[in-house]
Write a protein that binds this DNA or RNA. Structure first.
Length: 600
DNA sequence: ATTGAGAGCGCG
DNA sequence: AAAGCGCGCTCTCAAT
């Protein structure tokens, strides 16, 4: 059973809809203040909360201290179903693009990103659709128009029915149902993580910055340590005080004049050079990066009150991985993770999946030998790369790692290319799977993940370049451009199946974790309530996610049981995706009060 | 003033 | 040839 959520006048309309998409009764209209008890009523019946965009509703629920267990995010589901090869022949996919295809993600509320958008343009196509004309502030559809307008293109009940039908008519309803449930659960988790925030000690962050850069400078000034390094750079280059080390052009000119012999400023290029400017320059670049990307400005903007409220974009990457916007949540540098400290009486459970992608590949290809190489033996967690060495396929862990990465990314040079034939001999099924994905991409075809997320088609310019290579007068460069583009798209599809399926594993993992954590209930010890907002103030909850890694903030008394649940969730995710195929997804798990201490 | 590119580095 | 996948952010500089 679904509860479809929509605006209804000044309140929220909640409408029951069956699992076949049939409305069962009229919407009941609820004021926000009554939300908690209304939600509790439906939660008892295990409904799936169905809405156009999780960020348009769930933050309001959470602000009332209300958590929901299951959801169906129509925007995210629509995108999957439109593209998936499993639902390609359904009415939803065969119809033209609709208003649902033009929806853009809603940023979480209250954050800098939301504030930066004066008026978020929810429906880019709305003006054309409603032909609002030139008068009037091109804004919004009047409230309640859904009722007056018989053809509301964004009616959630109509869309839900269409989606449920597409799932039923697809070639594998089970997989798509799982994918959409996981995707929506991810949306819930992302909203909850934004709501709770990652505990962030501003004072520790400031310490890190001051130690590295000197005290916070006045606006417009350079921090002391950076200024000192700038002087050293100028001295080493015999350059005037006007030389600005932040300007690549300036710097390259000065370096050429001084005969340093480098045309780029890339770290790995500079490291090969021998010149007095290199050392201070490398240090300058590193500190400059810290200062600009995660310095005091970042702290003021993103973690002003003891919590970093990251803004995830669920489904933001074509492969199904999450993206982030604004705070750079997915690029949190290791050197500032020391500022992530749990609340008094609380602790972190940090877990990451070891070698997730090669394990996913082994399972996807049902390559028993590769899976066996990664299997946990005698209860001890096995390093998959070491396991590959143990099969005799390659002679060092480094070769195993580089070779596997090359196989999954499409490496054609160096060690990875050298090792590939040996991997192909030892694990023909796994290697064949990525090779086939690459060839499909080179032909301009679509590839699909385990649960049914399909890759996009190459853009129109792709076909144009391919076509031009077949012209009578096609030059050698046109042909080589086409060839290079072909290979490039092959590398993309090669990686898509692995990265995308790994993202599905991670979604299932998160979905399972959040359900298990909630089931643990409130902290029964008389420990500190912590500073987390309701409904998580006495409960362990997810605070961070990074592709194959999670952080749970938990009352200290619950840390061990949380760790168990996180491990159990990983096993569950493996079963959900791959059934009884014997593949392990071992985790490294740490219980720690500082995120920086967890990395192993 | 705003916008877009290129460069570079952070994360997995 | 630091290759080979996926991203976001911040800076400078030139173009609008």
């Amino acid at each position: 059973m679904h509860t479809v959520v929509s605006r209804d006048g000044s309140g929220i309309g909640l409408r029951p809809v069956s699992d076949t998409g049939v409305p069962e009764g009229e919407p009941r209209v609820v004021e926000t203040s009554a939300l908690a008890q209304e939600v509790a009523r439906d939660e008892a019946a295990h409904v799936r909360w169905t809405w156009d965009d999780t960020n348009g509703w769930y933050p309001e629920f959470l602000a009332e201290g209300v958590r929901v267990d299951r959801a169906h995010d129509l925007r995210l589901a629509h995108a999957v179903l439109r593209a998936s090869t499993l639902s390609a022949h359904t009415a939803l996919a065969e119809a033209g693009a609709t208003a649902w295809d033009r929806l853009t993600p809603i940023p979480p509320p209250g954050g800098p990103t939301a504030a930066a958008l004066v008026r978020p343009d929810r429906h880019p196509g709305a003006e054309a659709l409603f032909d609002l004309g030139e008068s009037g502030p091109a804004a919004t559809v009047p409230a309640g128009s859904a009722a007056d307008d018989p053809v509301d293109p964004l009616d959630p009940v109509t869309e839900l029915a269409a989606q449920l039908l597409a799932i039923k008519d697809s070639t594998d309803p089970g997989r798509l149902r799982l994918l959409l449930a996981a995707e929506s659960a991810g949306a819930l988790a992302a909203a909850e993580m934004h709501h709770a925030g990652l505990p962030w000690r501003g004072d520790v962050h400031d310490e890190i910055l001051t130690e590295a850069l000197g005290p916070r400078p006045r606006p417009g000034a350079r921090p002391a340590k950076l200024e000192a390094l700038a002087q050293k750079i100028r001295a080493a280059l015999d350059a005037p005080p006007t030389l600005n080390p932040d300007s690549h052009q300036d710097l390259l000119r000065a370096m050429e004049y001084a005969g340093v012999g480098s045309r780029s400023l890339r770290k790995w290029e500079l490291e090969k050079l021998d010149h007095p400017v290199i050392a201070p320059l490398l240090e300058y670049k590193s500190l400059y990066r810290l200062y600009t990307a995660n310095g005091w400005n970042w702290l003021d903007t993103w973690a002003p009150d003891g919590r970093f409220r990251m803004e995830y974009v669920v489904g933001g990457v074509v492969t199904g991985r999450w993206a982030s916007t604004g705070g750079g949540a997915l690029q949190l540098p290791h050197n500032v993770r020391r500022a992530v400290v749990s609340d008094p009486g609380w602790t972190f459970v940090v877990a990451d999946a070891a070698q997730l992608e090669p394990r996913v590949l082994a399972a996807l290809a049902r390559d028993e030998r590769m899976a066996a190489a990664g299997r946990t033996k005698d209860g001890a967690s096995t390093d998959m790369y070491a396991g590959i060495v143990a099969t005799g396929a390659v002679d060092s862990r480094e070769h195993a790692k580089v070779g596997m990465l090359g196989a999954m990314y499409g490496g054609t040079t160096g060690v990875s290319a050298q090792v590939l034939p040996r991997l192909a001999r030892a694990f023909p099924q796994a290697i064949e799977l990525v090779e086939r994905a690459a060839r499909a991409g080179e032909r301009g075809e679509v590839v699909t993940t385990r649960l049914g997320r399909s890759s996009p088609l190459p853009g129109e310019s792709w076909a144009a370049v391919q076509g031009s290579a077949f012209d009578e007068d096609a030059g050698a460069d046109a042909q080589s451009r086409a060839r290079s583009q072909t290979r490039s798209w092959g590398r993309f599809t090669r990686n898509f199946v692995v990265q995308g399926t790994a993202a599905e594993w991670a979604l299932c993992w998160i979905a399972s974790i959040r359900r298990r954590l909630w089931a643990l209930g409130e902290d029964a010890s008389d420990g500190a309530p912590g500073l987390a907002p309701a409904p998580f103030d006495r409960r362990p909850h997810l605070v961070f996610f990074l592709h194959d890694e999670i952080v749970v903030h938990a009352p200290a008394a619950l840390a061990d049981v949380v760790a168990q649940e996180v491990r159990a969730a990983a096993e569950e995710a493996g079963r959900l995706l791959f059934g009884d195929f014997p593949v392990d997804f071992p985790l490294s798990v740490a219980v720690t009060e500082s995120y920086a201490d967890a990395k192993g």
